[in-house]
Design a protein around this nucleic acid. Structure first.
Lengths: 129, 129
DNA sequence: TATAAAACCTATAGTAACTATAGAGTCAAG
DNA sequence: CTTGACTCTATAGTTACTATAGGTTTTATA
């Protein structure tokens, strides 16, 4: 299949697919007579692996590490473990931060008597200092 | 005070301060004989306003809007309200996403029997397909 | 068969919000 | 008077894409 088709079945944009290839996350596909990329089922699997990792917010560099590891199946998987643990820490950290944000934004929202003026806006006041 | 001092008291990096100025979020400060930026208390207040907004993850463009509104105190504050509400929606959305991530990452972490090989790594398996 | 439209190609620039660097000028202390 | 700390501007790099320009190939229609 050509790139447009792969884009459709994978849900990744055409540019993103080409970008992943450039970044070394996907194997170079074969090319047609006229230099069009030609993909098969294996390519789709590869792309889905990347996509799944991205859904977990794993950075491209880390995904590259995972792909490299897949090619060394004998190796200890502790680095995979570390990578996931790191990701989990990040996510937990970010959730904490966002919950703090949420509280403050909620307070701000309440502070605004909606059809007041900027001058007397409760929100604007909470932003000062 | 000079930029290094402002950086210290505000907790923003020197580059960030210059960047905010370039983006029109801070008034151009006066300059010394030798072309150094000279700040006063008012500058610090301005910077702290921006910083506070950034802590709430409000985008620079929206902060600019808020600053513009401050200069028109008579105006209705409904746009401020909208802006904060929009921000709150985003934060809530992101928290939801991150909680989903968290669950999946936790499952993955459990799937890994730590000192296994890549080949038999439970995490790697959850990433396939 | 001609041609137009759709799909594809590469290379480059833009996005957000900074951070880092290069290369030069300014200023205070010893 | 020189050394080192600080500042200046301008530019490039970061992440993970998205968008665009300008060109080629394929496919569908007339």
């Amino acid at each position: 299949m050509k790139i447009g088709q792969l884009s459709k079945v994978s849900g990744c944009s055409i540019q993103t697919i080409r970008y992943y290839e450039k970044e070394g996350l996907l194997n170079r596909p074969s090319r047609s007579e006229g230099n069009f990329r030609l993909y098969d089922e294996k390519s789709l699997k590869e792309l889905e692996f990347v996509k799944h990792c991205r859904n977990l917010d794993i950075p491209l560099l880390d995904i590259k590490t995972l792909i490299d590891l897949k090619h060394r199946p004998e190796e200890s998987c502790s680095s995979i473990n570390d990578l996931i643990a790191k990701q989990l820490d990040l996510v937990n950290q970010r959730i904490k931060e966002l919950n703090a944000l949420k509280s403050e934004l909620q307070i701000m929202k309440k502070a605004c008597s909606s059809d007041s003026t900027v001058e007397r806006c409760g929100i604007m006041k909470t932003l000062e200092v």
